[in-house]
Design a protein around this nucleic acid. Structure first.
Lengths: 152, 152
DNA sequence: CCGTCATAGTTGAACTCTCAACTAATTAGC
DNA sequence: GCTAATTAGTTGAGAGTTCAACTATGACGG
């Protein structure tokens, strides 16, 4: 009954696994080394920096980062200790919290960004031709689409 | 100086990030739920099951799994507690250790495999057409190749 | 041989993530 | 309005990962 992987699929799966793991590990290591934060935390700062007023509801932010609420809660607690984010009560829903990017957080992000972008470019985009980039986009969208359906 | 990402690259990067994260999270959750182990541990069992005599040197195994030595050491310790792997002194190098898949470990793997493969198929391959699978393979190889060069 | 350097693997602490349980506030049904 | 069900977010414990420090063995140059 099991629909096993054929050789082509098996090889693709292992290559994909190896590549994404190595890529993420490299970016995480670089970011940790140069900016003192893991990639997941960097992404939180990015999302906040793009939000109006540099703030977002916790849930919104969790969705944007593809993170669980719990994970985000712990992460924001950590970022608060660093002084890069602060929490604020939501004015329209008394259950809610806003995560707000501080000026110091924005400064950190501005410092970290060039190095990280260079990492993404050199490890990923420099290795692919334009049509591969386009295809990677379509492939990623397809995977994400499938997973969203599964959840529904 | 910084080679920033253009819109197409930015969108591709975020889609890729979201897709791989969601995919790995889903597979990890399924494996944890159905087999009581994370994906990284499953991979260790797979590699051992493919090795002659069901055993491998720790370093070899770490390389095969794209894992650090430390990570593997902790993981094998955990798998040893579960009785799925055991350690054995290497006969040719007194510094070395062999990780050996136990019969019970093999049984666990055999039980876990169909569910996991179904996950990989439904979440990944069912979402892609054959040419996308082929392209994903080439893209993954390119990324991996680039990272290996970087290290050298 | 002997000192130096590299390799194999482990360890503990600090950190991050997951999961389930929990509080508190909002919404929906009757 | 009042109770029940959702939703927002937090918390603590347990599990996995990272990093640097460490032990022990093997390899190499003189």
């Amino acid at each position: 009954m099991t629909r096993w992987l054929d050789d082509q699929e098996q090889a693709t799966w292992r290559a994909f696994l190896g590549a994404t793991r190595a890529l993420m590990d490299a970016l995480d290591r670089e970011l940790q080394h140069e900016a003192g934060m893991p990639h997941a935390y960097y992404e939180i700062l990015v999302r906040l920096s793009e939000a109006p007023e540099h703030n977002m509801r916790m849930s919104e932010l969790a969705d944007a980062c593809g993170s669980s609420r719990s994970r985000l809660s712990h992460a924001v607690a950590r970022l608060e200790e660093s002084g890069w984010v602060r929490r604020q009560d939501c004015p329209t829903d008394r259950r809610g919290q806003l995560a707000v990017l501080t000026d110091e957080g924005m400064r950190q992000l501005t410092e970290a960004a060039p190095g990280h972008v260079e990492g993404v470019r050199s490890h990923l985009f420099d290795q692919l031709n334009p049509s591969q980039v386009a295809e990677l986009r379509r492939i990623s969208d397809a995977i994400l689409g499938g997973l969203k359906e599964h959840r529904a």
